[in-house]
Amino acid sequence: MNIFRFLADLSHMASIVILILQIRKTKSAAGVSYKTQFLYALVFVTRYIDIFFHYVSLYNTFMKIFFVTSTIYILYLMRVQYKPSHDPNIDTFRIEYIIAPSAVLALIINHGYTLYEILWSFSVWLESGAILPQLFMLQRTGEAETLTVHYIFALGIYRLLYIPNWIYRYVTEGRVEPIAFLASLIQTALYSDFFYIYYTKVMQGKKFELP
């Protein structure tokens, strides 16, 4: 475990905690994309099925349980607890456009033709595009709650930090993971616009508003 990966995991965790606190505090899920949360739940469930047959460490197991349960909890908050606050009419990105290419990529680029490896690869590709409904929604509404913006930022930082993690692991262990590395690059590229606006507006204490 190196510092990049550890900070990445912490920022990933922080993003989820921020989102849960926001929804609970404001008793509203306005501005949060249900579709993005659903895709993340799918990412975690398809990737972490190995929890039952592949033990790595207590840290690893704990984090997997955290990501699966917290994301399903967010779905519950949005779908049941604070349902009226979520407006499906502005959450209109077609998730087939993310799921289908991810499935195709998983079938072409994977670490072996077993159900587990294909699901793993699918989850990695899916994760790189899962933020799109949320970014699309942000673009439609033009502005967002500060906390929603911090949530997206923390989530972006998490995958950005996995890039130096992979460079570090290549240098120190000689390990290369082309699938996760490429997916990290794609995901970070999708965030680049967002990062730019975050930097020019939110960091300077202004409200998040799209130009």
Binding site: V56, F67, G174, A180
Partner: peptide
Amino acid sequence: AVWNKVHDEL
């Protein structure tokens, strides 16, 4: 370089 799968990450 080792190209095989790394299963120890999240």
